[in-house]
Nucleic acid binder design. Structure first.
Lengths: 151, 151
DNA sequence: GAATGTTTAATTGTGTGCAATTAAATTTTA
DNA sequence: TAAAATTTAATTGCACACAATTAAACATTC
């Protein structure tokens, strides 16, 4: 029943949801994250935790600062998230002895072991989108450009 | 200093942040919402609250269900958000006498008054993007299509 | 080399998001 | 029409996000 998008002409069309860029971004981002959920849940991961692992699978050890720079998240988000990942024995947290201000996050065996099952997730998500590859690439490129412009 | 994007070749490029669609979506969505912040803060609004008002400025009265369908948010998110908006006297909340299950959210004068100052926000954001209008439209269209596909 | 400034995480507080459950009202069905 | 199913919000619990503040470590300056 219902689920009809509302529509009414308006003297300022810029104030309509559908004319904005931010709303579809906001909504698509949440829906796409939700599409990851069934796959991530099997591994006990949340989406932001998965992003942290994507970086650690490539670099083994990274500071909180570097993680934050690459994910565009601050310590207020990362610290508690990383503590939860530490409790699950996926990562280690220790101060850098050469600069005690920095905290080094290291990949532990249990975290490394998640890589194999996670490998197939991107492909499965791509299939879920049912989107021509060219269109996917175009959208990805545009978003990455916009990302640079907004940083 | 630093702020260098990490890069290392990898046997599975699909697992890299930059090859994914979801990460730039997630990051751009948060950055764009953050770009709204200074404008919304002047009005005491958060971004999701602004979205609720966008709909109420057009329709005056909407049920929680209809708001949720249009914003793709559930009552777990909307109920506390709307209670905060009620405390600020922007909206009213009452049961529909014809169907006591539904809660009707109504626009109050203080909420209606926010429309004028909010009118200029989309334009200011567009300027902030420094993006050709054609590109803006193309991206908006693609995202709205993807939104339909994901729903 | 002490004083000043900067960098880095952690903490605190507020506000989403959302899955899962609950409870009430309504609708459908037997 | 009584019983069963559905619809709708609210509630609960958990996990982000992020602004603002704090505190410790390091760097710079005089």
């Amino acid at each position: 029943m219902s689920n009809q998008p509302l529509s009414t002409p308006d003297q300022n069309p810029l104030l309509k949801l559908s004319s904005q860029l931010c709303f579809p971004l906001y909504a698509v981002s949440r829906l796409l994250t939700k599409a990851y959920q069934p796959f991530l849940q099997e591994l006990g991961l949340t989406y932001p935790q998965y992003l942290v692992l994507l970086l650690l699978w490539e670099h083994e050890e990274l500071t909180v600062k570097t993680l934050g720079e690459n994910l565009l998240l601050d310590s207020g988000t990362l610290t508690p998230l990383l503590k939860r990942m530490e409790q699950k024995q996926w990562v280690s947290r220790r101060r850098d002895p050469r600069d005690e201000r920095s905290v080094i996050i290291g990949l532990l065996p249990a975290g490394a072991a998640l890589r194999q099952p996670a490998c197939r997730i991107p492909e499965q998500l791509f299939n879920r989108l049912e989107m021509p590859e060219a269109e996917f690439e175009a959208l990805r490129t545009q978003l990455n450009q916009l990302l640079l412009r907004l940083q």
